[in-house]
Design a protein around this nucleic acid. Structure first.
Lengths: 169, 169
DNA sequence: TATTATAATAAACATGTGTTGATTAAACAA
DNA sequence: TTGTTTAATCAACACATGTTTATTATAATA
């Protein structure tokens, strides 16, 4: 598949330079794909990276949905997968092409629900929405910091820490 | 000043299209600045935008540092300024050129200190660092959501809400 | 005033971008 | 096999990018 070759080539190139300095020409050359073909699928390097981001998201969603128990288990599950694909995950996270990636990663019913259950008492819808935003992005950033560390706690431990922060402790 | 003209021109262009579709040629034309001159100062559109981001940060820091009291007042102060420059602030926030913008915005001693005072008991340095990350990015995202709303609460109210979320309530 | 840094312009060049229209290759059903 | 559809290539195009080298304004200073 052509798309696969382009993605693989981009991963290689991103080890040497950041996304802004990857030219479409060299990308196509590395992937051995015609430049016209690239434009048939993507509009830019960023588009391609965004597509790879979605691959990651989809895979995580599939992996996770089996055991949608509580927030702690979900976060731990996500982290486990991210750690298994450490290089790629770091690459996606640190190139932040999509400002809504955090939202997509943690916008799961199970999490939203647990936020509502925990915090909805006596709060307006607007306030709850703020809280939900606050928590998902806080959690996301925590996961990023964790991923970029060399000596990481276990995914389970981080899940515990984050769910503790969410319900505060 | 040449830089000023480039910045003003970019603001105008960003009202019509996003940063990826602003060409340096048209930018220079709009600013009435030679293209070579542009490259003397900046490497790309993104560079220019990042510089504008720093302007915003610096101004906020100057405005805020007078009354570095508690987290609530600081957040309220930041929001107040952002609201006064609503168009520009939205533009910067929604174009997220710098993934560390959140950190820069809230990485103030007063905030860090209040996090430490509130949460350091019985926690390792690593944990505290996670918490600090969690809270600053959560707060940042909340401010973003607030800024993008049409009918916003007052800055003081948001400051209250965020400081509540930080110390949990 | 003449002198000397500094900022901005201008022309030009090789390379990258995004799009077109025409051609070839591969896959598959009739 | 043939014909048909779809994917990929190729050549060529106008335009943008990033850099260089030389030239002209515009200051500030002696």
């Amino acid at each position: 598949m052509t798309k696969r070759m382009l993605k693989d080539a981009l991963i290689e190139l991103l080890k040497k330079k950041d996304i802004y300095h990857v030219s479409i020409r060299e990308l196509c050359e590395a992937a051995d794909v015609n430049r016209t073909t690239f434009y048939k699928y993507y509009g830019s390097q960023f588009d391609l990276l965004a597509d790879m981001e979605n691959d990651l998201l989809e895979f995580i969603m599939k992996t996770i949905r089996k055991n949608e128990e509580d927030a702690e288990k979900i976060v731990a599950g996500v982290c486990e997968y991210l750690e298994e694909n450490l290089e790629f995950a770091r690459l996606i996270i640190n190139n932040n092409v999509d400002p809504d990636f955090a939202h997509k990663l943690f916008a799961m019913d199970a999490i939203k629900q647990s936020v509502y259950e925990r915090f909805s008492a006596g709060k307006s819808d607007d306030e709850i929405e703020y809280i939900y935003n606050f928590l998902t992005y806080g959690a996301f950033r925590t996961v990023c910091a964790w991923l970029n560390k060399e000596e990481r706690e276990s995914p389970a431990e981080l899940g515990r820490l984050i769910s503790q922060m969410i319900s505060n402790g």
